[in-house]
Design a protein around this nucleic acid. Sequence first.
DNA 1: GGGAAAGTTTAGTGCCTGCTAAACTCGAAT
DNA 2: ATTCGAGTTTAGCAGGCACTAAACTTTCCC
Lengths: 256, 256
Amino acid sequence: MTSKRSSTPQALPQLTEPVEDYLKAIYELEMRGGVAATSDVASRLDVAPASVTGMVRRLATQGYLDHVPYRGVQLTPLGRRAALRTIRRHRILESYLTSVLGYPWDLVHDEAERLEHAASDVLIERMAAALGHPVADPHGAPIPTPDGEVDERWHRSLADLMVGETARMVRVSDKNPSLLRYLAEIALQPGVEVTMLAKAPFDGPITLRVGDAEPVVGPNLAAQVLVESMPTFTPAPAPAMTPLGGKPRGRKPKGT
Amino acid sequence: MTSKRSSTPQALPQLTEPVEDYLKAIYELEMRGGVAATSDVASRLDVAPASVTGMVRRLATQGYLDHVPYRGVQLTPLGRRAALRTIRRHRILESYLTSVLGYPWDLVHDEAERLEHAASDVLIERMAAALGHPVADPHGAPIPTPDGEVDERWHRSLADLMVGETARMVRVSDKNPSLLRYLAEIALQPGVEVTMLAKAPFDGPITLRVGDAEPVVGPNLAAQVLVESMPTFTPAPAPAMTPLGGKPRGRKPKGT
DNA sequence: GGGAAAGTTTAGTGCCTGCTAAACTCGAAT
DNA sequence: ATTCGAGTTTAGCAGGCACTAAACTTTCCC
């Protein structure tokens, strides 16, 4: 029935691994286009659409989401909190594994994907503290705060830059290892400045300047790399103690 | 006893969490008394005896163990390998969490208990490397090698020391947080020398010397602390090279 | 040696999560 | 407006893992 809802953030019950995966997937789908479709959830989680319907029904009765049959699915505030907790874990794990254990950034996603369900809050916070409370993971994704706030900002893609324009790379999906390996190869990582040198018409190849190199990439790749015009950028997995650059950061780590 | 088995390098399939727990529990029960009884497995895993029977039947058909109805259960070489892999993970995780992240040694068990099912081999080996390949965990339990060899040696308990005798503490179970907290309080940890000063008759209190202190403990506690006459002892989690975040909790290797 | 007691297994269920096949809905195109 | 197809849901089912209650062994004690 209707459980009493206080304004106090009640503790989330311990969720199963599949449930956390569903909520996370739905959250991420909602980021693009208000509601999540059954089939999108299905393909993201690599399960049959019918399975999604079943799970969604259960989650709806438990208050994690609203489901309008044939229409789609949307997280409730409770569901969003649960999703963001999982996402926080994931991104802190990625940051930790990358900067402390030297995990390559193209492999870190899968590892974090499993650990995020097993790590306790205490562990996650210890890792965050060890890193100096980073605000973004190695791929540039913002890390939600413990109480569920994220700075999910809108970003242009590299493909949208005008010829001659320079921007700073901010983010790329963590889900495509070969893309990540290639980006590492051409030194295109969050925080790096990139200039659009030339763009061949009809989705032709794109010439960039990254550091001293001038890699030529396809439009497909460029569309997946997000950039930011030029303002402040907080480097991803803050290498603990290195206070590189004295510029006043825009945001600073919350809490503390 | 030293188990040696490296002639069968076939990869273990990915096991479920409950399966790993069963195999680990059975392995540990076998250490004390050749076969594991259904009810012992049940109480260790906090599950109904009937559930054990069911699981055991499945694991037997899959070749992980032999089951003689009403008689007990014994791991096959395959099952032992699986168990030791999980135990290796557990102990390396405990070592890492303790010495790199400053996890208190009484809480580390539960965390490792969950992570051991999620961490990949690659991660575990990275952690082991970061620690300098420790041979024992923070509680003194030996860490199996990647190919399943352990140095499970027999140890006397502290309660067995003669009055006047000095020994080195080597090990204590990781499963009892309050015991561990108390041991930490009286500075009784693996590697430390301890002398039996007095033993009151009829299971009376036991007076020890640990460092400069002379704690008096119950026979119950003394029975759980394992000691070694005097030979070399290799300290558990060799302090990592870069302890970022954690306070230096790690013991220092003495002369050795 | 004959019962109890203790321990173990079978029988019967339930929940979770996934599947396939079939039915249904919605909206776009005719 | 009817139809058709893509997308979604229902129905029915399976496997993993847990439970209780009841039946069955083994052990132990008189």
